[in-house]
Design a protein around this nucleic acid. Structure first.
Lengths: 223, 223
DNA sequence: TTTTGTGAACTAGTTCACAGCT
DNA sequence: AGCTGTGAACTAGTTCACAAAA
């Protein structure tokens, strides 16, 4: 079967788990690249980063034949492939709604910029915040400007960083601008129409799971 | 089979997915409670919050028989049960290592306090930060004070909010104090000994998954 | 009758193990 | 010889569907 035949149609539903792992692989490769490594085998990757070799191969093979049998994967080449697959070959503009502690911190978080994400705008409704900028220089707009700013700046990802009671309203607002990807930090379950990808990153849920494992006394590694 | 016989031994390994869902259920119940609802059936819960009724029942039944056949669950009673199961019946003290943007924001994040978590201390190595306090009043200590502050304040959860290159070192440091639960915001794969529960909350991974789904053009709901 | 609790059926995700390249 | 790519086997997680209880 030819490599191109392997690339799946855009309609195939790929699980969230695979998407997250690809992102992890990319970060592992960056580390190897920095360390001057040119070629790596799936088992070397697996061993170094506590992953499963077969799973790495399967995940990668899903998108094409990137390896060379008997040799392994070219670190540089695989990095490039993963960046393309993850859509990181172009810069992505991100808006954060909610200029509270969390929103402000996310806006200036250096990790995002580093990986190719531009946080181009914050939004809030409080008059004392609107018009200001974060320490890192991200401008804070009024939420009513959302649609205008989104289309002018080609924003493709919206981040919800408002309290729970406002979250669904904000999400609807984001969806109405045509944005197709939402990262939600607020607690509770948001509803978005089909065609819009929602990812939850509720920090309290994470802490409460830890609490749960502490209470039971059984631990173990996370996947 | 008696209700108590259902309660599983502490050695049973319960998946992360169940733990997270319990936390979500608890939040749904809080909303219902605020709305003055006294009793709720699994299907009502499922319908209102876009969950699966059978899954709710199975998750809950794993820990005991909390429902009444033909009636449903008492909102108040189930809340209390979930809080116990999640270990939220006692307050939990949390330390955050890394007083950067993210660490500072997490320290003052009102959602944590609200749910029963006390962020009692921040840690950093920079002399200009050590000795200060966050806006919310959380004191910033030097990392070398970690062990002392942890034992004096009965801290049971450690949060890693430092750059990737320092993360493993910080994790080791946390483990050495006897803390058994770590929430990791840094990118990359940390290694912790068995008996310590590690939960990753890498924000870049979340954004990159979204980017991936944008690039493919297939969306759909997250689990 | 209504709704729980749960075995059975099903679906998704992971790992094994090896054929097939290089 | 060594390592990828992948069907087959396995494991985990979800949903169905119904008996038992209120």
């Amino acid at each position: 079967m030819s490599p191109s035949a392997k690339r799946r149609a855009a309609t195939d539903q790929v699980s969230d788990l695979i998407a997250s792992r690809l992102s992890v692989y990319l970060r592992c490769l960056s580390l190897l690249d920095q360390a001057g490594v040119c070629t790596v085998s799936s088992s070397a990757l697996a061993h170094q980063f506590h992953l499963n070799a077969a799973q790495i191969r399967k995940d990668l093979a899903y998108f094409g034949e990137f390896g060379v049998r008997g040799v392994g994967y070219s670190v540089l080449e695989l990095q490039r492939h993963l960046r393309t697959i993850l859509g990181l070959d172009r810069r992505l503009n991100v808006a954060i709604i909610g200029a509270g502690n969390l929103g402000l911190a996310l806006a200036d978080y250096p990790g995002f910029r580093q990986e190719g994400f531009n946080i181009v705008a914050l939004f809030d409704t409080l008059p004392e915040k609107v018009g200001k900028r974060t320490r890192g220089g991200v401008p804070i707009h009024h939420v009513k400007e959302l649609r205008r700013v989104v289309s002018r700046n080609h924003i493709t990802i919206g981040v919800v960083a408002v309290p729970a009671n406002a979250a669904q309203l904000v999400a609807n607002n984001i969806v109405s601008t045509g944005i197709k990807a939402i990262l939600n930090f607020s607690p509770g379950t948001l509803r978005v129409p089909p065609g819009v990808k929602l990812k939850n990153a509720d920090l309290t849920v994470s802490l409460e799971s830890l609490s749960f494992f502490l209470a039971r006394g059984d631990a173990g590694e996370e996947k």
